[in-house]
Every structure is written in structure tokens, then in C-alpha cells.
């Protein structure tokens, strides 16, 4: 009880010591300067993130084709979306893609980072080669894979043929079209996350490993008891960013399959783009965007909670 009172007293003291922003003290001036420097970022964030967010929600309550007068229709767009099989399908397709890409990236990027955290010959050269896909534009990358998947002369098809698979038609088959997208996205996305993991690994003090070695810990034990626990904040970042990125994927599907065959690769972002900018149903697309946002929000909150609990443990 006494501890609680003491803590409250300390908080009040700190509060009373905090300078007012309008004061003339050095601290107040520093605070004003700080806010001044932060203002461009706040304004940018407000104009290009917060405002569009609310604008999207507002537009979702209207029927609007971009060209005519917007008509208020309340939650009709949301009701229609709940009955739209294509929309529900696109949510499923997005989850399929995101899980397929992210799980593989978490594991492969970590494995590569652990590898590149060791010292070996030509390490920098290999690192540059592995990083190469990340610097190529996604559009170019997608078009390269379009040729690679060509069943007649594509490199991927030739490789599959060499392995004994015949008539490999990755993009033409609803069962393989999405795995084809996942594969090219893993290849493209892994290097970036590998570098993030690598930065995390470099930040772990070497003393821990030396002490563990002295205590007789094996390499696996050092990985399990030192590396992975200390990488948790990095892992949290990678998980959140990769999932959000995967849900926003659009370019490969747009360029390689246009969402097909049928709707097999029509992810949510493509559904939104088509409804908004091809079918000119801005209200409908905005409603889908709001639901998309809520899905990502729920995902992010759950991820933060789970990983925070783990850290507290």
C-alpha cells in the first residue's frame, strides 16, 4: 500500500516538474523545437495516412462512380459485400497467399541470416547475390517469372521437366497458380527480411555466446537459449511487417494472371483495385478497404499481444 502511495507521489512530482510548452525555460524552448522538428512528419502522417483513412470510411457509406454525384446509402455497401462471393473468396485467397509467403519467409530468412552471421570465404559476395532479388523492381521480377513459368520454354518448366514432372502449367491451373505466386514472392521478399534478422543477430553481444560456450552449451542450445529469445523484438517486427506486406500484394497477380484462372489468385487488394478503378464503384471498394483494414488491425493486435506475453514470460 505504501509502495503505491509512494509511486503516485513520484508520478505527481514528475508531472509538476514537467515544463509547460508555453513557458520560457530552456526545457520549454527545447520542447517547442522538438515539436517543430516533428511537425512535418505529423503533418505528412495526418494528410496522407489519417485523413485518407477516415475519408475511405466516409466514402464507403456512399454509392459513387467517381464521375457522378455521390449518393448516401448507409451501410448498404457492407451488406452487399457480405453477400458477395467474390469478396469472400478474395479474403480466403489473401489469407492463403499471406500464410504461404510469410511462414516460408520467417524460416528461410532466419536460416540465411544465421548462415551469413558466420564467417566464411566470399561471404560478402554471396550476401550480395542473395540480396539481388530485393533490388529488382517487383514489376520486372514478375515479368521475368512470367517467362520462367511458360510451359513451353520457361526455365521453371524445364527444371520441373528435368525432375520428371510433365506438362507443368503453373499459371494456367487454379491449383498451382497461387503456389506459383507464393514461390516468386518468397524469392523476392526473403533477402530484405534476411538483412533485418542479420542486423538483429549482430546486435546480440558476443559475450553471451562465449559465456555459454564456457558453460558447455552446444550450438543448438546457444541458438535456442540465446539467439532466439534475444531476436524476439526483431521477429515481432518481421512478423507484423511481412504479414501486412503480404496482404497488400498486388503486382504479381495483376501482371501474371490478372487474378485468374477464374478467381484463384484474386487477392483482396486486387478486388479493391478492380472495383474502385476498373468498375468505378468507389463506395464499394472503400467498404472493402475498411474491412481489409480491420482484418490487418486485428492481426497486428493479436501478434503484438502474443509476442508481448512471450517477452514478459
Amino acid at each position: 500500500m505504501n509502495d503505491a502511495i509512494a509511486a503516485a507521489t513520484r508520478r505527481n512530482q514528475v508531472k509538476s516538474e514537467r515544463p509547460s510548452i508555453f513557458g520560457k525555460s530552456l526545457a520549454a524552448r527545447k520542447m517547442r523545437f522538438g515539436l517543430l522538428f516533428a511537425a512535418p512528419a505529423f503533418i505528412f502522417f495526418g494528410l496522407f495516412y489519417v485523413y485518407p483513412l477516415f475519408r475511405t470510411f466516409y466514402v464507403s457509406l456512399f454509392s459513387w462512380s467517381l464521375l457522378d454525384e455521390p449518393r448516401f446509402i448507409g451501410v448498404t455497401n457492407y451488406v452487399n459485400l457480405s453477400n458477395d462471393k467474390e469478396f469472400i473468396n478474395s479474403i480466403g485467397v489473401s489469407f492463403y497467399y499471406a500464410i504461404g509467403v510469410c511462414v516460408a519467409i520467417w524460416v528461410i530468412a532466419l536460416a540465411l541470416a544465421l548462415m551469413f552471421n558466420q564467417t566464411f570465404r566470399f561471404r560478402q559476395a554471396y550476401l550480395s547475390v542473395y540480396y539481388l532479388p530485393a533490388v529488382i523492381s517487383l514489376t520486372v521480377w514478375s515479368l521475368v517469372w512470367l517467362f520462367m513459368y511458360n510451359p513451353s520454354f520457361g526455365l521453371f518448366s524445364e527444371f520441373a521437366r528435368w525432375l520428371g514432372f510433365t506438362n507443368v502449367r503453373m499459371l494456367d491451373n487454379p491449383q498451382t497458380a497461387m503456389p506459383a505466386m507464393i514461390l516468386l514472392s518468397i524469392w523476392k521478399g526473403t533477402p530484405v527480411y534476411m538483412l533485418i534478422y542479420l542486423a538483429g543477430l549482430r546486435a546480440i553481444p558476443g559475450d553471451y555466446y562465449e559465456a555459454a560456450k564456457v558453460d558447455g552449451a552446444s550450438a543448438l542450445q546457444r541458438l535456442w537459449h540465446i539467439t532466439l529469445p534475444l531476436l524476439r523484438p526483431v521477429f515481432l517486427y518481421v512478423v507484423v511487417i511481412s504479414i501486412i506486406g503480404a496482404f497488400q500484394a498486388f503486382t504479381p497477380m495483376y501482371l501474371l494472371t490478372n487474378g485468374g484462372p477464374g478467381s484463384a489468385t484474386r487477392v483482396l487488394s486486387m478486388f479493391i483495385f478492380q472495383n474502385g478503378f476498373q468498375f468505378l464503384k468507389m463506395g464499394y471498394a472503400s467498404a472493402a478497404s475498411v474491412i481489409f483494414l480491420l482484418i490487418l488491425l486485428v492481426f497486428s493486435i493479436v501478434q503484438f499481444r502474443i509476442l508481448r506475453f512471450q517477452q514478459q514470460d
Binding site: 485523413y51 477516415f54 475519408r55
Partner: peptide, 18 residues
Amino acid sequence: LLIVGAMLLSACTMPAAA
């Protein structure tokens, strides 16, 4: 305040006809 401001801004600049 930011949220309220953004909502008001959204409402004030509701899309009009082309």
C-alpha cells in the same frame, strides 16, 4: 482531436460530381 478533425475534413470535402 486529430480523429475528429480528420472526420470533419472528410465530410467537408465530400466527393462531388466530376
